[in-house]
Simulated assay, not measured.
Amino acid sequence: MRIVIVGAGQAAASMAARLRASGHDGPLTLIGAEPVAPYQRPPLSKGYLLGEMGVDRLLLRGEGWWAEQRIELRLAERALRIDPAARVLVTDRGHHPYDALALTLGARPRRLPVAMGGELPGTHVIRSLADIDVLAPELRAGRRLAVIGGGYVGLEAAAVARKLGLEVTLIEAAPRILGRVACAETAALVRDLHSAHGTTILEGIAISAIAGTERATGIQLTDGRHIPAEIVIQGIGVLPETDLAATAGLALDNGIAADGFGRTSDPAIWAAGDCASIPHQGGRLRLESVGGAIDMAEAVADNILGASRPWQPKPWFWSDQFDTKLQIAGLGTGHDRIVQRGAAPSASVWYFRQNRLIAVDALNDPRAYMIGKRLIEAGRSPDPDAVAATPDLKALL
């Protein structure tokens, strides 16, 4: 069986490794548009941007591993279209017949429209190694940075910039930072952390444009204020990469629509990672996380080989900001009660829905994270009052 994987990120590398480990002995090709072998993305906005990690530490596999595993790694090659009838992937460098095709295309960062200055020199996004290689030399002490968007990527970039000595203003159009991904209690802890380190955070105010003609000079707010800045980072989320799937006629729904096994509307084509969504609790779930990419890719690899193993998401995430590690287990969407234990610098926030534990945010509290994660994955829910009152969280197990 000829298997072709398109996309060269975490999901692709995990899938290729699982296929070989599970006994697939046939041709296996991995095709990526970037000129770099599969690498970790989370450190890009943390250690790599700060200059504490080199490219060699980002790589998911050593240089010789791909050849040892007889995986044909084709880099700097862009997929153009799929011919589902002929089962052929067409790239800018040739044709690749397949028996099974896996789309692990990831996501691309959103940008503001050109009319709003979204493409001006001096504006940046954070998604790829190339993005950081362009941004990092600009982050020099004393310069002014404006970050658009108060999600995790924007906050991580703001933290790095403050550590490097820049003046940082972060602007969030929603009423508060982390509005889409965390409760108000967690957002307050993170806001206080940034304020203590000198970041200016503006919430509940939209921007009308990135100012400048030849180059970005700041941010124009809708209330008339101007925020001067030599550098602008757009941290306004990502869009799943679906163009290749769309031109092939595959079903789309919050990304490339896959079933619970990772199979798309074409039985020979599979999807995993940030680009893919699966049925979940009456809707569709698309996880933008390393853990989700690894777990789904391994399940899809098994299913390509005939396992018929549905993927059961077990969401977990993390974010490093200043001297704080935020670890998250579960999905807090739809919570109706919050229990907070402790205060900065070490605290945990527990999410409940109808008295069922659904998520935990832990700031510098790895014990709370591990216990919460074990409870969620086991489907066990301690009483919310017990979470608040017990001196030793281990008793909840």
Rank of each mutant, 00 (worst) to 15 (best):
I5S: 06
G7N: 07
A8F: 00
A11C: 07
S14D: 04
M15E: 11
M15C: 15
S22D: 15
G26D: 14
G32T: 13
A33R: 15
P35Q: 13
P42L: 08
P42A: 11
K46C: 00
V55T: 14
D56V: 01
R70P: 04
R74W: 00
R78F: 03
P84Q: 07
V88N: 03
V88E: 10
T91F: 04
G94W: 03
L103K: 07
G106W: 12
R110C: 14
P113V: 08
G117N: 09
L120C: 12
T123M: 11
I126D: 00
A130I: 12
A141M: 05
A157Q: 01
V168G: 00
A174M: 13
G179N: 12
R180D: 01
R180Y: 02
R180I: 01
E185I: 05
T200N: 13
L202H: 08
L202F: 02
G212D: 04
G212H: 05
T213V: 15
R215W: 08
A216R: 01
E241R: 05
T242E: 05
L244P: 02
A246Y: 07
T247E: 14
L250M: 11
A251Y: 00
L252P: 00
A258V: 06
T264I: 03
S265L: 05
P267T: 09
I269T: 01
A271G: 01
A272D: 02
I278C: 02
R286Q: 05
R286H: 03
L287H: 04
M296W: 12
A297N: 13
V300W: 08
V300R: 10
A301K: 09
R309K: 14
R309S: 11
W311I: 13
P315D: 09
W316L: 10
F322L: 10
T324F: 09
L326A: 11
G330Q: 07
L331F: 11
G332L: 06
T333W: 12
D336F: 07
I338Y: 05
R341C: 10
S346P: 04
S346E: 14
R356Y: 04
L357M: 12
I358V: 14
I371F: 03
G372T: 04
I376A: 05
A378I: 10
P384W: 07
D392S: 07
A395L: 12
A395N: 09
A395E: 12
L397K: 12
